[in-house]
Nucleic acid binder design. Structure first.
Lengths: 212, 212
DNA sequence: GCCTCGCTATACAGATCGGTCTACAACCGT
DNA sequence: ACGGTTGTAGACCGATCTGTATAGCGAGGC
């Protein structure tokens, strides 16, 4: 069964804004692809900016449960939840329709912090930080706020560089870094405080120096 | 004395593209602010895209020497060069005209990896990674490629989140994380007797990922 | 039947987009 | 004084932009 016009509009807008950017995507294109009349759009939204806001909210509504669900599923398999985030990240960026983080992209096109679109993008981004903070608390991190923000920095950096380079090596290295930071932030179970357990086991995968 | 028309054009375009984004900035605006006739633009550049390419190159030409110079200056003050990058980052993001990384922003507006603008943005980004890699090698890092990429991830993540949030806490936490990763990647320094043997630098150290 | 309501279809407004064209003025070395 | 180069000034092109106005269609409720 077909979506309601408003939902179809937001879905199509989300897809096109993701693929082509916000300013580069015209109203008419969205309407044509959604098969919707112009007046219907302006019945539901006062302006294009309002439509953009709705697409960002929609993205959050889709993304956040997905993240939580993936982390839980991986955790049931025995994976550390904080590290599972990076597994989910890898999965998300492997999607053929990966165009970077739409919230960061929105901020890149709407620089003004007071712009409602920029503000909404930031609001959505904070969900991730809050989510990770919750996991960090449960894991018993020494400074859950600091660790959560550090992991967020790794995540967003990995997304940006994966998008720029077109390969997922940044995500791999972000995961490596995350493991070190997590270990460093968790109370040591092991013998001597300050001594890090080091185990350099790693098969030689695809060479990293090739494309970079 | 006034800049040459072409240079004035690129300077103005760089400023406006940074402030407002690429698609959102029209040719006419740039021409008006630069005080230049339209025909002069199209004498020097075949299209707006070519002008965008020139602004990205210009930004690299300005940014890269600045980074190298700041790191050297801080190093003369005794600062670890790898950490000095994050001091420079903090300085750069404190600029009132900070609108995120223009290379990442360019990629956000020109998603296609084959787009010359996307490719140029990536090319400029790699300079940073190469620069950090050089420092990592000189510092004797075990896996300079891995460490360099990890620090790049931290840098870009910190830029994105600082831009999104409007505060510099992400940079602080990125610096904290960087110190941990650097310490972890460097052979333990000598002064402490005996406890941990200095690890030899790994040759062809593609990816000795660290496991817990 | 009839009326309302949500949506479609289409034409239009006014602005702006990237890009082309012509005409002309200032400066150059010769 | 000469022609060539380089830049300016501004009209102009067709396309596209966001947003509005008008008219009609079809289904559900009464």
């Amino acid at each position: 069964m077909r979506e309601l016009p408003r939902d179809r509009l937001v879905s199509t807008a989300l897809r096109l804004f993701s693929e082509r950017g916000f300013h580069a995507t015209g109203i008419d294109t969205i309407l044509a692809e959604a098969g919707i009349a112009k007046m219907t759009l302006y019945k539901h939204f006062a302006s294009k900016d309002e439509l953009i806001l709705a697409t960002l909210k929609r993205k959050g509504d889709e993304l956040h449960p997905w993240i939580a669900q993936r982390v839980e599923a991986l955790a049931r398999g025995g994976r550390n939840r904080l590290l599972a985030i990076f597994d989910a990240l890898r999965e998300g960026c492997a999607d053929p329709n990966f165009y970077g983080c739409i919230f960061a992209n929105a901020a890149a096109e709407f620089h003004d912090v007071d712009d409602p679109i920029h503000a909404e993008a930031y609001r959505q981004k904070r969900w991730t930080e809050d989510f990770i903070h919750g996991l960090a608390v449960k894991a018993g991190a020494r400074s859950p706020h600091a660790l959560a923000l550090q992991l967020c920095v790794l995540i967003d950096g990995a997304i940006v560089l994966t998008h720029l380079s077109g390969n997922t090596e940044p995500i791999r290295q972000a995961t490596v870094a995350a493991r070190i930071l997590i270990d460093d932030s968790l109370p040591k179970p092991g013998p001597k405080p300050g001594a890090r357990a080091v185990r350099p086991v790693r098969k030689r995968g695809a060479k990293s120096g090739r494309q970079r």
